[in-house]
Design a protein around this nucleic acid. Structure first.
Lengths: 202, 202
DNA sequence: TAGCGGTTGTACTGATCGGTACAGTGGGCC
DNA sequence: GGCCCACTGTACCGATCAGTACAACCGCTA
């Protein structure tokens, strides 16, 4: 769980961050197995001694990358932290779309890309699982808030609804990814939102 | 597009199939980059000369694997070829679940696993896209049949509905995969089916 | 100024990667 | 029976892989 050595000085922290950032960017495009440690170090400008000073091995670097992905993802959809009305949910889906409307990056969820590859790795798979659960927990919290406010039916299950929303988001992202077309994600989000609002108290 | 050499004799065809089968099984678990040609050959019992006799390079082997995946997937849900009633759609989702209820195999769609990794490979990505479209086309055909029979609303769009169903299937598969729990897929399929039937003519 | 621990550069290792070279072997057809 | 060609086994190549060894450096405190 712990890193080989924690960066104590600002300089060390900067180096460690640069390595993780470079790894995150490369693995987003080429996958874990397709991204060698050497490439990461070349891209980050760090040397091999730094890499193995801060990380025990490549898998531990991937662990840090997974955490970084979650931070990036949630940071790109800040509305998810304050879902207190149906309008907030609309805003959230818009933010989700805006991330991928920005050119340059491929249409894909970095965690989703990893999910397939990491599948059975007993060290990494639980981390991906936990990241998804964290993501989903914000939706659960938002839906619970709405229910407590009386805007969601009392018998609606926030956990089930949140899981349904996550399903739509990631199914939509996957389809949009392979088609290089955001339409699939837009449709998926619209349907997901309609599904949630079907449980609203009008 | 063509293979390096097509297998003309039964013996050659058997060898080629063994290579593709071994590659498909290994890449299902370890991903493309995580599966070396050497491992494939060791698992299939074939030699390196066979591999490069039938395939120009590793990418071309992956092409064959993608096609094999589509065959396997559709073969595991034969109801998709004859969707002529709402009951057929129910049967289809049941078959989809049964595949993953069988122990041994990881809960995951082989194409989905590849989708993330292959993402930008200009040679492979279109093949994955095409495989998904083929898959989806069977749903479109089924929905069109229902519409023509008057069991689906005349103004319903089979293409849109089919895409929505695909989204649910793959979102559900992804979540079920990382959680090692089929519930997410079961829920997703139930919701997708409800969504489709909401457009039914009662 | 001496030392100390966090940090860094570079050279290296053995294993494995994708791909090639080449000398065969097997079975069907005349 | 002899030929032909699809097919096969094995040894090899340069490049790259993850990971190690080790000497040096930096900025701080005493």
């Amino acid at each position: 769980m712990e890193t080989q050595a924690s960066a104590t000085t600002p300089r060390g922290k900067r180096t460690r961050d640069a390595i993780v950032d470079a790894a995150a960017a490369l693995m987003y495009v080429d996958g874990v197995a397709g991204t060698s440690v050497d490439k990461v170090l070349a891209a980050s400008g760090a040397g091999k001694s730094q890499m193995y000073h801060y990380f025990r091995n490549k898998d531990q670097l991937v662990e840090a990358v997974i955490e970084r992905y979650l931070e990036q993802i949630l940071g790109n959809q800040p509305a998810i932290f304050a879902l207190t009305s149906w309008a907030d949910f609309e805003t959230w889906t818009e933010q989700l779309l805006d991330v991928h409307r920005r050119a340059g990056a491929p249409i894909a969820c970095p965690l989703g890309n990893l999910a397939g590859e990491v599948g059975d790795n007993p060290k990494l798979a639980p981390l991906v699982d936990r990241a998804y659960r964290t993501w989903e927990s914000h939706l659960v919290r938002g839906l619970t808030t709405l229910r407590d406010k009386g805007e969601l039916a009392p018998d609606a299950d926030p956990a089930r609804l949140a899981q349904a929303a996550m399903t739509s988001v990631h199914g939509g992202l996957l389809l949009a990814h392979v088609r290089h077309d955001l339409t699939a994600l837009e449709d998926a989000l619209r349907i997901a939102l309609d599904y949630l609002r079907a449980h609203a108290v009008s």
